[in-house]
Design a protein around this nucleic acid. Structure first.
Lengths: 169, 169
DNA sequence: CATGTTATGTTATAATATAACATTATCGAC
DNA sequence: GTCGATAATGTTATATTATAACATAACATG
């Protein structure tokens, strides 16, 4: 299913259902930018986009080790730094996890909906909120450069489980 | 200078210029809620609201020790947990720091403007953004409970220092 | 293929936060 | 007041997240 954004990746379909396309896109994007999409970086991105939930750095580390790769914390953090610079991965400050981003082509700003129950996280692309934020910041004399908007709550599924009656409506 | 919000504390004046009023307000608020505003909690809140910038937990720990108080990490974290529950203190996830909140009376949602240069942080109270966020979340089937909105950039002073020509406009 | 640059390996450690259990203080019932 | 329950703090240990520093390996390019 396509979304309203440019590019071959859809942000309305979970990335773990389009891993191959996503990795191919990442590779070509890095080539365009003359950046090296090394095996390590590919592996880390692959793990992140195969996961249903955002992953912590040490979870990634364990997975790399489980794959037989020699790895230490800097191994993971350096790969994550690179992927973040390329816009392929976002870091969630509210729970120290990392997730893949469907639309790294142009730097954008996103709103994250983080389910406190199951950890599933959706990325919304909502220009309006960022425009409003920038404007309010400017009115306060502040030059906004980046905004982290992380909403915690309950996703559809977990809300229905928690309050079953709500599901029947 | 008063602000548009209820209560005796103004959020347009730095809290370190109204420490006594702020601590008195905190004390009466806790009494109303039948919560204990102990000496430790008062000290931690006092340190936080005396600071110009948000403080890290270990900076607070060092300050407590410097005051001759026996303190270990849990000392600080427990006090911070309490103060957050009472709405007197917010935690900034983007840099792991804690700051005082001028309007703990009713749970509210805030936007933080964090200067990446000097660390100074302003809290904006902007209902509009939160309404928009909640609505967008709801449209995505998500029940929003809390939103952390942390904007990083440059405050007026640091922007002028960084790009002096801008100051002349 | 020599050389500078970028990426990775490796060890150690910093910074942030919590678990677990002992002790002390406070509140209410009596 | 004192007893018992609850809440708060003290204390030690450890978990979790992240970075510093330096060595080695891989790659790009003349």
């Amino acid at each position: 299913m396509r979304c309203r954004h440019a590019g071959s990746i859809s942000c309305v379909t979970p990335l773990y259902e389009q891993q191959d396309d996503f990795l191919a896109m990442a590779e070509s994007l890095c080539r365009q930018r003359q950046q090296r999409f090394t095996e390590l970086r590919r592996q880390v991105l692959s793990l992140i986009c195969a996961a249903e939930q955002p992953l912590g750095a040490y979870a990634l580390l364990d997975m790399l080790k489980a794959k037989g790769r020699s790895a230490a914390p800097p191994t993971v953090y350096r790969a994550l730094d690179f992927l973040q610079q390329q816009g392929l991965v976002h870091r969630l400050a509210s729970n120290n996890t990392y997730l893949a981003c469907a639309h790294p082509q142009q730097p954008h700003e996103a709103v994250f909906l983080v389910c406190r129950q199951c950890g599933n996280t959706r990325e919304l692309h909502t220009d309006g909120i960022y425009r409003a934020l920038s404007r309010q910041a400017r009115d306060a004399g502040f030059l906004a450069e980046h905004a982290a908007v992380e909403v915690s709550g309950l996703c559809t599924r977990c809300r229905d489980i928690t309050t079953p009656e709500a599901a029947e409506k």
